[in-house]
């Protein structure tokens, strides 16, 4: 019994002194302008943050939501915010049917992409090949790989180190625009370059 009282008192003191172990969660707008949601779960309850700048605190229970002003955000989270890694950027390069040579407009993008890669701290580049649903599935796997490798070689020729590039091929399995089988869809004949 005594232990319970001590535990209770020390918890009470903790709360009074502001030292109760606390998690504070603040929802922020995404860098692309959208706003997501955060669900905050404890074993007993759940709260969903939907408005940017709102927060809850969790000790034993979840507090009512409040609004955190920019000054407090900067004071508390400034160093973490400053260290945030730049937003990953993705590009799409497009191909003629059956070809693994990007079209002219796509090829012209490459110098800009190389420049962006060079500006990043410790950049990594994922190159993902895709096809539309025309023709044989296995051949499309092969074609999507050829497309991705062609882009890797072009980037390497422009000075991007091979060891920071990773190639993968999704064939016709991951269309940008879902279609039925055997559909020629220019928007699906693509290579995605994701720069992190």
């Amino acid at each position: 019994m005594r232990y319970i009282i001590i535990a209770y008192l020390s918890f009470f003191l903790y709360v009074l002194l502001g030292h109760a172990p606390t998690t504070t969660v603040v929802l922020m707008p995404d860098e692309d302008g959208g706003v997501g949601r955060v669900t905050v779960n404890t074993q007993q309850e759940e709260y969903v943050l939907t408005e940017p700048g709102t927060f809850v605190q969790v000790t034993e229970r979840i507090s009512p939501p409040g609004e955190m002003d920019q000054e407090t955000i900067d004071r508390v989270f400034g160093p973490a915010l400053e260290m945030q890694v730049p937003l990953p950027v993705s590009f799409h390069l497009y191909f003629q049917s059956g070809s693994s040579i990007p079209d002219a407009a796509s090829s012209e993008l490459l110098p800009k992409i190389v420049q962006l890669i060079n500006e990043r701290p410790y950049p990594q580049v994922s190159i993902i090949g895709h096809t539309d649903t025309m023709g044989d599935k296995d051949l499309n796997n092969l074609l999507s790989l050829e497309r991705a490798e062609a882009i890797r070689n072009m980037l390497a020729d422009q000075g991007v180190p091979r060891e920071i590039m990773e190639v993968s091929a999704h064939g016709q399995n991951d269309p940008l625009v879902p279609t039925g089988p055997d559909v020629s869809e220019p928007r699906n004949r693509r290579v995605e370059i994701l720069v992190r």
């Binding site: 998690t23 603040v26 922020m28 949601r37 779960n41 000790t59």
Partner: peptide, 15 residues
């Protein structure tokens, strides 16, 4: 204290 889940989100946390 909690488990945070997301739907396309940026958030800040302090423990």
């Amino acid at each position: 204290q909690a488990v945070l889940g997301i739907r396309g989100t940026t958030f800040l946390v302090r423990v």
